[in-house]
C-alpha cells in the first residue's frame, strides 16, 4: 500500500508545479491568443466532461441522480452559490430515494 503514498506525492508535485511556475516565472502577459483562449476554455471542458455522464451513477439509483442533476443545473443556472447547489442536489436525491427504496 506504500505505492499509494507515491501516487499522492507525484500528483502533489505536478499540481504544485503548475501553480508555482507561472507565479514565480511569468511576470509578463501571455501573448498567444490561442493559448489564452485554450486556457480559458479548459476548466469548462474538463469539469463538464467529469460531471457527465458520471453524475448519473453517483448515487445508488439513476432516478435520484437524474433528479439531483436537474436540481443542480437549475440552481446553478440561476447563479446560486456553490454550497447551495451542492447541498440542494444531495437533498433532492435523498428525498427521491426515500420514495423508491
Amino acid at each position: 500500500m506504500s505505492k499509494v503514498y507515491a501516487y499522492i506525492l507525484v500528483m502533489a508535485v505536478v499540481t504544485y508545479a503548475i501553480r508555482a511556475i507561472p507565479l514565480t516565472l511569468i511576470r509578463k502577459e501571455i501573448k498567444s491568443k490561442f493559448i489564452k483562449s485554450f486556457l480559458y476554455y479548459v476548466p469548462y471542458a474538463t469539469l463538464a466532461a467529469m460531471t457527465f455522464p458520471a453524475i448519473l451513477s453517483a448515487t445508488d439509483y439513476w432516478m435520484s441522480s437524474v433528479v439531483g442533476f436537474a436540481v443542480a443545473m437549475i440552481l446553478a443556472f440561476n447563479k446560486k452559490s456553490l454550497l447551495t447547489v451542492a447541498s440542494c442536489a444531495c437533498a433532492a436525491a435523498f428525498i427521491v430515494e426515500l420514495f423508491i427504496r
Binding site: 463538464a48 467529469m50 460531471t51 458520471a54 443542480a72 443556472f77 446560486k80 447547489v85
Partner: peptide, 12 residues
Amino acid sequence: LAIYGMFIAIIV
C-alpha cells in the same frame, strides 16, 4: 452528488 453539484455550480 456533492462534488458534481460543485462542478456544475462553477461552470454553468
